[in-house]
Each structure stands twice: as C-alpha cells, then as structure tokens.
Simulated scan of single mutants.
Amino acid sequence: MRILITGGAGFIASHLTERFVIDGHHVAVLDNLTHGKRNRIPPQADFFQLDLASPEVDKVFRSFRPEVVYHHAAQIDVTASLKQPLDDARTNILGTLALLIHCRNHGVRKIVYASSAAVYGTPIYLPVDELHPIKPLSLYGVSKHSPEHYIEAFAALYGMDYTILRYANVYGPRQDPLGEGGVISIFLDKIANGFPPVIYGDGLQTRDFIYVKDIVAANVAALTNGSKEILNVSCNQATSILVLLNRLESATGAKLTPIYKPARPGDILHSVLNNNAAIKSLGWLPRFSISEGLKDTLSG
C-alpha cells in the first residue's frame, strides 16, 4: 500500500515509518524537519522536506499518489501554544485543513489522525472514555481537537474514511526531553546527566503512560480497522509520578532523590484513558507494562 506519513521524522511517526517499511509498504515521509531528524527516516522511504502549507505538497500527492495518509505533523509544545497561539493554530489547524484538501483532491482513501488526551481537559470521571466532555485547558488541546471536526466533515462531504486516535502519555526512544517534554524523557535526561529529577507537587498525580511500540501497533491496526471512529489509545492504567520514579530506579539501577517544587497552575491531577473502544474496534491490545517499556527504552 502507498502510505504518506506527515511528521515522519519525529518521535512517534519515525517508529511508524520504520514499521510500515518493514511490513513492505511503499512509504513517503513529509516533514519540515523543524523538530524531526532526517536520520530517523529509513532509506527505503521517500522523503519530502516541506511544510504542510507549502504549495509543493500538491506535487507530492500527484507524484506519490498515497492511498492512506497518517497525520502526525504538529506543533506539540503546550507552552509554545500559549506564547504563540497563531503559530500553533497555523500548524495544527490550518496545516491539517491544507492536508485534507490535498487528500480530497487526490482521492486518498483514508486519513489516520494523531490526536491527544489534551482535548479532554480536567477529567470529570476516570477512566476517561470517548464520550467524555471536550474541555481543553490549553490552546494546544484546542488546536488538536479542531482538526477532528474538519476530518469528520471532509469524510461526510467527500466520502473519505478516517480513524482518529487520541493518545495518552506516550514515551520511548527518540523522545526529545526539550521538545515533546514527556516526563519520562525528562527524567531519563536528568538521570543521564547526573541531575536529580524534579517533581511538581507531591508526586501522587497520575498519568496513563503508553509505550511508543503500542502506539505504532494501534496505528498499524487502523490501516484496515476503526472506520470513522475516534478512539483512545492508552494502557488504561494510572501510574503515579512516585511509582514511575521507583520503576526508573529499578530500570537504571540509580538511586534517585527528587527535588520537589510547587505544583504548576493548570496541571491535571489525574489522567487515565479508557481504551476499551480501541481494543474492540482495532483488534489491538497494549503489550508493554511500564517496566517493560522503560527497559526497552533504555536498550534502544
């Protein structure tokens, strides 16, 4: 199959690119390399260094003729979305809209969109399922949610199929502790450089950590399943920051003494996503426990 992956030089999508190449698909990557790295793209994949808004993207669609598009290219920094909301919207909302127009114009069969748990905001109940109210706390959450509506509208208007995947807290090899800012990558960077990890609050706050290989498996399943659905991709398991630190000690052999700082305004106390719909619709299951994922991350 001919698969185009936007943001394919980034953390998550580079793993997905590798997987589809291994599976024998003809893969092309579209990435402006603002945050992605060229050396993450397998030589078997075609590569186009372009911004989503570039008119040259039309030529990519004409020449490559993708059947399915995986859309991971995004502005992913929550702080940046607050400081530069117009840039955030240009990339995440207008960039997606431009991509959808190309998909419509060139007969793309399906788009798989990487959305985020950030669309939900502060949970009213746990675990959060797909029927939970959408009340994002950040502008990033707004800009990740808006494309979901555009995708649904394009599907209804032009007969395009889609699957929207709302990710929990993803971690794994290649995650940038400065860019993506996942707490696991930040902690591992601190440990590697001999600095104590910093905990904001009491460390009892919880997150739903999912390993990148489980995210990739869900995306692969969405190639043929999950038609016109919005699905949480998670482990459906809450892990506190203190328990995470304990798992990191076991995985690294380091004795970790964290520095505690006041909780940050706007931080969600507890977050865990219900993944039952994804399990049913995609025929998928997360395979990696937090301990297994950390071990694999360190070996990778």
Rank of each mutant, 00 (worst) to 15 (best):
L139W: 14
G159R: 07
T163C: 13
A153T: 12
P147V: 05
E148R: 06
N169H: 12
A153H: 12
P136R: 03
E130V: 03
D88A: 13
I151G: 00
H145V: 08
P136D: 00
C103L: 04
G121S: 09
R109G: 08
M160N: 01
A98N: 14
T96W: 08
I151V: 07
A98M: 12
T91D: 11
V112D: 09
P123A: 08
N105Q: 12
P147E: 02
H106T: 00
Y113P: 02
Y167W: 13
R104W: 09
T122L: 13
K135T: 14
S115D: 04
Y150S: 12
Y150A: 12
R109A: 10
A89E: 08
H132F: 06
K144M: 08
G95V: 03
V170W: 06
E148I: 09
D129M: 05
S146C: 12
G141L: 03
E130S: 03
I151D: 00
A118R: 07
I151F: 03
I124Y: 13
G95Y: 05
E152W: 07
P133T: 10
P147H: 03
M160L: 14
D161A: 11
A153Y: 12
I124K: 15
A153R: 13
H102W: 08
L100S: 00
I93A: 02
M160F: 05
A89N: 05
V170H: 06
